[in-house]
Design a protein around this nucleic acid. Structure first.
Lengths: 147, 147
DNA sequence: AACATTTTAATCGTGTACGATATAATCATT
DNA sequence: AATGATTATATCGTACACGATTAAAATGTT
């Protein structure tokens, strides 16, 4: 038996599990808004800066268009965003928030503090969180540049 | 604009992205073995202890049967595991490694060091990794007990 | 201008995730 | 022993992820 193959020695498994459990924890918070976690991420991007190309959202979220396109189509069907062909470059698709999409921001503004609250019930202090963010950024940047 | 809704302030987005990028990084390592990352996790569990119930694997990986069952069915079709009805309790399904499944362990033994190597190209040192593991465990245990 | 090349999205197919539901087998009570 | 409650998996439907391919449009070259 190889010790390096023990599940408990796998950092990656923990990342995978933590990510899944957090997405699950978001569900009850996002359900009242009628959106999923990846859709929430798209809205975060658009709330920061509206009228973006699919490629802009793609770069920001590190997701390919084959993931984002159907996601945006569902959001369009829900009336959260509108999509229009680019005028400068006809291949591009411009994504814009609808009034409904903009209004959702109000309902979402307390979600981050709810999540922080849920996590700080544990002994996860401010300082641990900062270290975590910095370590994750290191990992993300390392793996991003591998393309 | 609410600062708490800025994407860059979201710990959760980083976890989500790091997890996805790591799974992507595993792909070229797992492809020669003909398995996916979740299938690799199931094998890690079975390599540690063979002949487990679906519920055992479920608890170990924090995944529900509705995720694991089809996963195991694909692995069975690939000849990596076999599934049989429990003798003591007919509701249970016993999952066992086939010879092919056992043999894969040999081919997999260098995968962890490959991943560690890829990550240590960044400035992620041994110490950061230990802190990361401990923080993730805190998060996981907090969210697990919320059920 | 005509055409090969590149770029940008969308489409397609497979494999997870996961809530909700169904099925089947055991257990607890009567 | 019969039946209602519980438990262990499996099934179903929806929504991602992502590699591979396609389609359309802009760009570069001759």
């Amino acid at each position: 038996m190889y010790p390096q193959l023990k599940l408990d020695n796998q950092v990656c498994f923990r990342l995978y599990t933590a990510s899944r459990l957090i997405t699950q924890a978001y569900r009850p918070l996002l359900e009242p808004l009628g959106i999923t976690y990846p859709q929430y991420l798209v809205l975060l991007v658009l709330w920061e800066k509206d009228n973006l190309l699919v490629s802009d959202i793609s770069h920001r979220l590190e997701l390919e268009s084959n993931t984002i396109t159907p996601l945006l189509q569902r959001m369009e069907k829900e009336g959260l965003v509108s999509r229009s062909k680019g005028v400068v470059d006809g291949r591009q698709t411009l994504v814009s928030l609808t009034k409904k999409g903009i209004r959702l921001q109000e309902q979402a503004k307390d979600i981050p503090s709810c999540m922080t609250g849920a996590l700080s019930h544990s002994s996860l202090c401010e300082n641990d969180a900062r270290t975590l963010v910095s370590t994750l950024d290191t990992i993300i940047n390392t793996l991003k540049s591998n393309d």
